[in-house]
Nucleic acid binder design. Structure first.
Length: 1221
RNA sequence: GGGCUCGUAGCUCAGUUGGUUAGAGCGCGUCCCUGAUAAGGACGAGGUCACAAGUUCGAAUCUUGUCGGGCCCA
């Protein structure tokens, strides 16, 4: 007995019951325990930040993250799933600031960093409950109890270990980074914030002369003598192009354009495009000479309203090295004429010369770009490029910067500007330039410029800040080598977006001048400035003279604070401001103390450290082994925006830390240090070296497969936005359709990497198409199996035959089941959920619309014969296997089916469970399994092939403790599959033909002719004429060879076969084929197995595979054509056929009435029919048929004694009918 | 502004190494079925595969450019 399904089944409600069931029986935990000792499938959870409500996009990520671990678990692997939370970072601080109504760092400091970081902790866990609830409700099985948290002490110390390791290898260094800087607030702004603050403003637009140095004068003539050997190979001596001749004594200027005159004080270089054409022009009005891009001569002349005559041109490359006078001389004393040795020999001056650049814009300006590295990212990068050319590398050229962090000019600037806000200096600078004859032209332009989104009048400036970097660029090749081994889905990520990012890798700017983050564990000697890294709190506290005592708290800051407020989370010990109090004796200078640098680190470093930090590696006991067993991950998945976030973080950090030295692309220790890093106090401790050595491996990329998800858009195609209310909340979907519906929609509706709209209707459709249809089949089985007392147990009165002995339809659906299983396994092994889901959907369609429909009579008939039991066993086996097949996709409904199909078995098992304690569960479980097996063996005396097809294991407590089904090749019959497809095709064509003739299926027809395109399956089809006849309600089905009266033929080449064979001749072959008599050609192919055509005087023989014969119905016949052939129906109706039609019509009305009156399926009725004599005569003639079809015990012609009569139309007749029980 | 990516039916999306009738579901229309019923089914209409050029015997598919959307970066 199977538990009857409720009259009104609710997926959402059933899911709640399954959730409770899983939790009561700890199914997730058991699914892990059961695989203890099995090979691992490693999954890494990318930590979400829980400071916002989860939306459908998060559901998609979590659904995908659930699917494959569930599948792999069922395939016998141990898939631990540790949850995690990302808790640090600027977004959290911004949230808190919003809440507190503050913005600047000063405001945070005056609010109190202690209070602030506690607010951050609260904020970051504000929506944890909602996230956990969503996670649970969606059926994402993940270990939330033991989630890693990035701000926890253990995690932070792991991250510290990584940084210490890199610091000691010289891979962590200080440098500059140009940021969008809010000077008044003293902070950098994130890209997102900057994007918010763009406004249209008026700015000065000035054309300025950079006068080419007099020293180059000599060159003008030297050039003609060939060679620019000049100053002994010193670049910047002024290599004037040979062809450029300027009269002696005439000044030549590089013409530059800028909208930020205040940056001219800090000018360092002038940049040209090496491949760009430049012109030497003569200003006839003033008799001056300028150099500008050739393409901009015209526009510039127009702009400055002068006549410019081109004297000569050259490529920008020829200008490189040319020196000019700085527009302001405040740095001239320190830099003028200073040169330094280059890596490839020779020397070059440190400033004010022409350098090559690849970003020259020929739309605006002059094609020569003023470079001020402190105030522009591209400018700064260019400085970096220049620095690299020198022997001294990063330290070869100083950064020119005349601006203080507060946005005012510093004391290096000319006195007139000192202490003034930079933008306020523009006017005076322009005036000075004009006075000095350096200004060629001035105007104002309107353009977009960013302002601080929270202080509207504060313009942002680009500003170079001191920052800590990780030397990732040295590992570029190793990154690429590792990347090449990752299976990316979609594939193009590898060489596209991600590979591209790696190829252009720049050093990771690690530090943040903020409060809520992992503190950078670097301590600096207050005398010598020497530094060292610290790997854990214990290590710090063990340092000589270590203390966190402050003047205010002489006994230690932390202890005092903790005493003041015992609820202070202990994890905060390793955070600001508490960690900042720690000082210790400097190993570098007697009497000196070590103090921590103020920065925290980029929170992406936290997230990217999770492979080891989630285990507290290497400090936590056992963490070294734990980590080693769980690295790399077999599978991760996040959305596309994580390419440069988490995906990169994982890859780069583990490559830096764990790549074997000597692997491709990995710098040797010597090379690592070559970049001149701050010297560590001592070589790395032995312990640290051992740990790294233990963790190092050949396979340091941290994930083998990565599914990159597309973004989920709102219903209107825009980004999902709470404000726009353009999407449905996850909880609404869960309550209305259920989690399975949402999951199935994600898995089946599109490949996961397309960005797609989240439309409610699409979820409803996905549910209808798959879950509801499957439910109907399941319900059908449930109802009739109970009516017939079907017992799946082979010895309990429903005799079971091995599949091979069952009927064709049973063998067909079992074959489909196993073909589907094979396909789904293949696809899931390759992480391709979309085709797998599509195939399952097709299978359920075939099950419902062919197997069950074609089998209904077998379930309904009263005789309990073997045929009936075959049908039950088949459907039972199919549903049981299906419940396991769909378990990773729709875990809830899979469990509903599984538990129901288990029937009484469930209760027995649960009874055992309830009595046994935890320790004995596994054994009792085994015991049950053994008993089942024994019973199965006993019953299946037919042998092993039969045993293999014993219905899905019903021995497990939950479907999620089962093994994933395996395909049994013995049950797969490819030919039968092809033939059944053909039959379904032909039936479909027959229906089309009927529709054309406007003959509904209820009306029986005398005859149909079927003309097949190919003879292959003809014999088999003939045997199934009865089936086709029944489906089409046609008395007789004939297969016709001589079908010329119905069809015409067409022979066409199969280009896929013919193209490669004939190449350019292919069209001619096609033409020749068209010339042939189609009927004769078809005949030739059929009888001789080949067809000769003459092309270009050559006789070619085509095989049947190279020729397609198409059939086309002749006009005038009610026929339909398809790939398989043509179906022609005879439209003529005889009186007998019409009568039969009437009967079926009448039966249809009676059945509708039964349903309307809610009669039980098996209720017998008395039928009253009041109708015209003609119709009554028919009723009498077919009384037996009607009685049988409608379960009528009596048919009375006339009105019912009581109750209303229902008027119905039966073709042209009007009848009144009533039924009574 | 740069890189990557997408643009296929009214809508949401597939489209396997280029192969000549471009598919599915929904929606729409016509109809069927009703002893699976928050149903189900059949058939049909609907597409210059964003646009343009090129490569090829052959292009939704490859190349280039243009336009539009998205993401990341600037």
């Amino acid at each position: 007995m199977f538990e009857p399904l409720p009259a009104e089944f609710s997926f959402a409600q059933a899911e709640q019951q399954m959730l409770a069931f899983w939790e009561r029986h700890r199914i997730f935990e058991r699914s892990l325990e059961q695989r203890r000792g099995a090979p691992r499938f490693v999954f890494y959870e990318g930590p979400p930040t829980a400071n916002g409500l989860p939306h459908p996009g998060h559901c998609l990520t979590r659904a995908i993250k659930d699917l494959f671990p569930r599948y792999q678990t069922m395939c016998g692997r141990l898939v631990e799933r540790k949850a995690g939370w990302d808790t640090h970072g600027l977004p959290v601080e911004v949230e808190v600031c919003k809440e507190l109504g503050i913005h600047t760092k000063e405001e945070i400091e005056s609010y109190g960093v202690e209070k602030f970081v506690r607010k951050c902790i609260e904020s970051v866990f504000r929506y944890t409950r909602e996230w956990e609830q969503m996670t649970r409700r969606l059926g994402f099985w993940v270990n939330l109890e033991e989630a890693y948290v990035t701000f926890h002490q253990q995690y932070v110390e792991s991250v510290w270990w990584s940084l210490k390791t890199l610091f000691e290898r010289g891979l962590l260094y200080q440098g500059h980074k140009v940021v969008w800087w809010w000077a008044q607030g003293g902070t950098a702004l994130s890209a997102g914030e900057v994007g918010e603050g763009y406004r249209t403003v008026q700015d000065p637009s000035v054309y300025v002369r950079f006068v080419v140095r007099e020293g180059t004068e000599a060159r003008r003539h030297a050039g003609t003598q060939g060679a620019s050997q000049g100053t002994e190979g010193t670049e910047g001596g002024g290599a004037w192009p040979a062809e450029w001749r300027v009269p002696a004594g005439k000044r030549v200027s590089l013409l530059v354009w800028t909208t930020t005159p205040w940056t001219l004080i800090s000018n360092h270089f002038a940049a040209v495009g090496p491949d760009v054409d430049y012109a030497l022009v003569h200003d006839l009005a003033t008799d001056e000479y300028f150099c500008i891009a050739a393409a901009l001569v015209g526009p510039t002349a127009e702009k400055i309203k002068r006549k410019l005559e081109t004297v000569a041109t050259c490529k920008g490359a020829e200008l490189v090295g040319l020196r000019y006078e700085p527009p302001f001389d405040c740095y001239a004393r320190s830099l003028a004429d200073r040169t330094a040795p280059l890596c490839d020999g020779g020397a070059a001056s440190l400033a004010w010369r022409v350098v090559p650049a690849d970003f020259i814009d020929l739309e605006t300006g002059t094609g020569i770009v003023h470079i001020a590295p402190a105030f522009g990212e591209v400018d700064f990068n260019l400085l970096q490029d220049e620095r690299r050319r020198f022997v001294d590398g990063p330290h070869s050229i100083p950064l020119i910067c005349s601006v203080r962090p507060d946005g005012t000019m510093n004391d290096e600037a000319p006195p007139a500007y000192r202490g003034r806000w930079v933008k306020d200096c523009d006017k005076d600078i322009i005036r000075e330039l004009r006075d000095r004859g350096l200004l060629l032209h001035q105007e104002t332009i309107e353009h977009e410029y960013p302002f601080c989104p929270r202080a509207e009048n504060d313009a942002l400036i680009q500003y170079a800040r001191q920052s800590w970097f990780v030397r990732t660029s040295q590992f570029r090749e190793a990154f690429l080598a590792n990347n090449a081994q990752i299976r990316w889905l979609p594939e193009h990520i590898r060489d596209g977006r991600f590979g591209d990012f790696l190829r252009n890798n720049v050093d990771w700017a690690l530090s943040r001048e903020r409060y809520w983050g992992t503190p950078l564990p670097i301590w600096v000697c207050d005398k010598t400035g020497k530094m060292e890294a610290v790997g854990s709190l214990a290590e710090l506290m063990a340092k000589p003279g270590a203390t966190d005592a402050t003047p205010e708290y002489p006994d230690g800051l932390w202890a005092a604070k903790k005493a003041e407020d015992p609820t202070l989370p202990d994890h905060l010990r390793v955070h600001k401001p508490y960690i900042d109090a720690w000082v210790y004796d400097s190993p570098f200078a007697p009497g000196a103390r070590m103090r921590r640098v103020p920065e925290v680190i980029d929170c992406w470093w936290d997230a990217g450290s999770m492979p080891f930090a989630q285990w507290g590696f290497p400090h936590a006991p056992g963490s070294v082994e734990t980590f080693a067993q769980r690295f790399p991950a077999d599978f991760i998945s996040e959305a596309i925006d994580q390419t440069r976030g988490w995906f990169y973080g994982l890859l780069s950090i583990s490559t830096l830390l764990f790549t074997q030295p000597g692997s491709p692309g990995v710098p040797s220790p010597g090379e690592e240090r070559a970049g001149r890093a701050p010297a560590p106090a001592a070589p790395p401790a032995q312990e640290t070296r051992d740990v790294v050595a233990a963790a190092r491996r050949d396979y340091p990329h941290p994930y083998r497969t990565c599914i990159v998800l597309g973004h989920m858009m709102g219903e209107d195609g825009n980004k999902m936005s709470k404000r726009l209310r353009n999407y449905k909340e996850p909880n609404y979907v869960f309550d209305t359709y259920g989690a399975d519906a949402m999951r199935w929609y994600f898995f089946s509706a599109q490949v996961p990497w397309t960005s797609t709209r989240f439309v409610e209707a699409a979820i409803r459709d996905a549910q209808r198409e798959f879950l509801v249809r499957l439910y109907n089949v399941f319900s059908f089985f449930n109802i009739y199996a109970n009516i017939d007392g079907f017992d799946a147990h082979p010895t309990h009165g429903s005799p079971r035959r091995p599949p091979a002995e069952r009927g064709e339809l049973d063998r067909w659906i079992l074959s489909e089941l196993h073909r589907t299983t094979r396909f789904v396994r293949e696809k899931l092994d390759a992480f391709e959920n979309y085709p797998a889901a599509g195939r399952l959907n097709d299978f359920v369609d075939g099950l419902s619309n062919w197997y069950v429909r074609r089998s209904r009579e077998r379930f309904w008939k009263s005789a309990k014969d073997q045929d009936k039991w075959d049908a039950y066993h088949t459907l039972y086996e199919v549903l049981g296997t299906l419940s396991r097949l769909i378990a990773p996709f729709t875990p809830f409904f899979a469990e509903v089916m599984y538990q129901n199909l288990k029937g009484a078995e469930t209760e027995r098992h649960e009874g055992t469970e309830a009595r046994s304690d935890e320790g004995t569960q596994a054994r009792s479980h085994e015991g049950t399994k053994a008993r089942s097996d024994a019973r199965a063996r006993q019953a299946d005396d037919a042998g092993s092939s039969l045993r293999a097809s014993v219905p899905p294991c019903l021995r497990a407590l939950s479907v999620h403790l089962c093994d994933y089904p395996t395909a049994d090749p013995a049950l797969i019959d490819e030919q039968l599959a092809a033939e059944m497809d053909l039959v379904r095709d032909i039936v479909s064509l027959g229906r089309a033909a009927r529709t054309t003739a406007r003959l509904k299926v209820r009306q029986p027809l005398a005859r149909a002719e079927i003309v097949l395109a190919r003879a292959e399956h003809a014999d088999w089809l003939r045997e199934h004429a009865a089936l086709i006849a029944e489906e089409l309600n046609i008395k007789q089905v004939e297969f016709t060879a001589a079908a010329d009266q119905y069809v015409t033929y067409q022979v066409k080449p199969d280009f896929k076969a013919i193209g490669p064979r004939f190449g350019k001749l292919a069209p001619q072959v096609a033409g020749a084929l068209q010339q042939l008599d189609p009927a004769a050609a078809r005949e030739a192919l059929a009888s001789r197995g080949e067809l000769a055509v003459t092309v270009a005087g050559q006789v070619l023989h085509l095989t049947p595979q190279e020729v397609q014969v198409r059939l086309e119905a002749r006009p005038g016949w009610s026929a339909a054509q398809g790939r398989g052939g043509v179906v022609v129906v005879q439209t003529e109706l005889t009186p007998e056929l019409i009568e039969e039609g009437l009967v079926r019509e009448l039966i249809h009305h009676i059945q509708a009435l039964r349903k309307e009156q809610d009669l039980a399926y098996e209720a017998r009725i008395t039928l009253y029919v009041d109708a015209p004599d003609a119709l009554l005569a028919v009723v009498r003639r077919f009384e037996a048929t009607i009685a049988q079809e409608c379960l009528a015990t009596r048919i009375v012609c006339g009105a019912a004694p009581s109750g209303p009569m229902h008027t119905v139309k039966v073709e042209q007749h009007t009848a009144r009918i009533a039924i009574a029980t």
